[in-house]
């Protein structure tokens, strides 16, 4: 099962990189989203999979009879998801602002901060 998840994560990262290299900001963000899901999958798988054994205590805080799943990766993923969500939302707003200022989302054509030199020697 871990192997399947590992392969899936690899596939998702590959797809994410493909999207990111496109140069369009919206595709870049989708790629980022995909990548962050792949990363969460990696964390999940690296905590080892134990299906059907939720990390929940019984009534009165008693330990369950069977082994429990590792709860730490789940907590890590939750944290990473929340942070990732916040960052993604910010990036989305930024994309919106960029579209307002530039009229397009081609990252290569955003040259307001680093204008292309008009001639070989701008001082002349």
């Amino acid at each position: 099962m871990e192997v399947v998840l590992a392969l899936l994560a690899g596939l998702m990262v590959a797809a994410a990189v493909y999207l990111m290299l496109w140069g369009d900001m919206m595709r870049f963000l989708f790629g980022l989203m995909l990548m962050s899901n792949a990363v969460n999958l990696v964390i999940f798988a690296s905590g080892r999979l134990t299906p059907g054994q939720p990390p929940l205590l019984g009534a009165g805080g008693k330990l369950p009879e069977t082994a429990m799943a590792n709860a730490l990766p789940q907590a890590l993923i939750l944290t990473a998801l929340v942070i990732g969500f916040g960052l993604f939302a910010f990036a989305l707003v930024l994309a919106l602002r960029a579209h307002h200022s530039f009229g397009h989302l081609e990252m290569n054509d955003m040259r307001a901060a680093e204008p292309v030199a008009k001639s070989a020697d701008p001082q002349e």
């Binding site: 916040g86 939302a89 989305l92 707003v93 919106l96 602002r97 307002h100």
Partner: peptide, 14 residues
């Protein structure tokens, strides 16, 4: 508060 800040900002920006 954070979610609503975000959602309102997105609503008003469109």
């Amino acid at each position: 508060g954070a979610i609503l800040t975000l959602v309102f900002a997105l609503e008003e920006a469109v």
